[in-house]
Structure formats: C-alpha cells, structure tokens
Simulated scan of single mutants.
Amino acid sequence: MIKINLLPHREASRKQRRSAFFAMLLLSAIIGLIVVLLVGAFFANSIANQNERNRFIKAENTRLDAEIQEVASLKQEIAALKARQQAVEDLQSDRNQPVYLMDELVKQTPEGIYLRSFKQEGQRVALNGYAQSNERVSELLRNLSNNSAWLERPDLIEIRVANIGAGRDAKRVFEFTVNVGIKRPSDNEPGATPKSADGAAAGAAAAKKQP
C-alpha cells in the first residue's frame, strides 16, 4: 500500500530552521553580553586596584616628604651645633694665642732683628721692624716657615732702606713688614702645651733688641 504525505513539510522545515537561527542568535547575544560584562568587570577591578596603588604611593610620598624635611631640619640643627662648638673651641684656643705668638717671636727672631710692632687680624699677624741686612730678614722668614710650631706661611710684604738715629749715631738699616699666619692648638701635634705668660713677656722684651 502506498502512503502519501500531503502535509506542507517544507514550510514546517523552514519554520524550524528559522526558530533554530533565532535561538542561536539569542544565545550568541547572551554569551556576548556575558563576555562584555566579564571584561568590563575585569578592567574596572584593574582600574580600582591601580587607583588604590596610586593613592598609597601618594600617601607614602607625602610621608617621605615630611620625613625628608625633618631630616633636613635635623641636619641644619646639627650643622648649627657643630658651628657653635667650633666657635667655642676656637675662642678657647685663641685665648692663648698672644702667649704662643710672643713666645714664638722670641724663639724665631734672629740676632740683628728689632721688632718694632705687630698687629693681629684674624689668624694673620703683621710684623714690622728693622734688620741689619737682607740676610737677617731671610733668616727670620726661614725660621717662621720651617722652625715654628705655631707660626706658618710667612710673606714678606715690604722691605726698604731706612735711617735711625741722628748725627754720628745714625745707622742705616732695613725696615721690613712680614705677614705670618698663626696655627690654632688643634692644628699642632698632640701634647703641645702653651707657654707661661711670664716667659712670653720676658721673651717679648728680649725680642726688642737694638740691631
């Protein structure tokens, strides 16, 4: 017996394929939306984490800036304290400089030199006096440069011929000016001790000898 299907199967097949197409399209849209939401959530989380790191870095930078300012302030205070301490030490050592100066001038002034005056400005002293010859002045400079523990870097500022006395007592001498530096006790060897004021005063009197 022959069976004949008279139903519109082609139209039904088309409807079935159309329904399947729309179902796949809807499923694709849903999957795409889910992917977009997941990616957006990932990037939003990354941005939030980066913003949190930025806030942390800014807070740490602010804290470090405050610490740096505090350290700079402490360094300035330390430098000021060191400067004050050095000033006190310099005053303490400079208090005995006249003693050292007069004692050294007695020791280092050779025969034939008459020191007329000396003037101190800071750590330099200007010596003015008379000498019998240029060689005496050279000897004085050598002594001040090489033999003195408290005097250094002598410079001959001026030397010229002069006459002292009158008549038969007149003498031809050389008037000179020498600039020499004074060392502080801290610049000398350990164990160096100042001389007594009495010995220095006696030496100063001996230094003022007529040529």
Rank of each mutant, 00 (worst) to 15 (best):
S28K: 05
A29L: 12
L33K: 06
L37H: 08
L38N: 14
V39R: 12
V39A: 14
V39D: 11
G40E: 02
F42Y: 12
F43W: 13
F43Q: 08
A44G: 13
A44V: 05
A44H: 07
S46D: 14
S46C: 09
I47L: 13
I47S: 00
N49K: 10
N49P: 09
N51L: 09
N51H: 02
N51C: 03
N51E: 06
E52C: 04
I57C: 01
I57L: 14
I57M: 10
A59K: 13
N61F: 03
N61C: 07
R63S: 13
R63I: 08
D65Q: 13
D65K: 06
I68C: 00
I68L: 15
I68G: 04
Q69G: 13
E70H: 04
V71L: 15
V71S: 09
V71C: 00
V71W: 05
S73I: 02
L74H: 01
E77K: 15
E77N: 08
A80K: 08
A80M: 05
A80D: 15
L81H: 08
R84C: 07
R84S: 02
Q85W: 07
Q86G: 00
Q86T: 06
A87H: 00
E89I: 07
L91W: 04
Q92N: 04
S93W: 10
S93V: 03
D94H: 08
Q97V: 11
V99A: 05
Y100T: 08
M102C: 03
Q108K: 10
P110M: 02
I113K: 02
Y114Q: 14
L115F: 00
L115W: 01
R116Q: 14
F118G: 03
Q120G: 02
E121M: 01
E121H: 02
G122A: 00
G122R: 06
Q123Y: 14
G129H: 07
A131R: 07
Q132I: 14
Q132H: 10
Q132Y: 03
Q132C: 03
N134V: 02
N134K: 09
N134M: 07
N134E: 13
V137S: 06
V137F: 08
E139L: 12
R142E: 15
N143V: 05
N143T: 05
N143K: 04
S145V: 10
N146D: 15
S148V: 08
A149F: 10
W150S: 15
W150P: 09
W150N: 12
L151R: 04
R153K: 07
P154N: 10
P154H: 03
D155V: 11
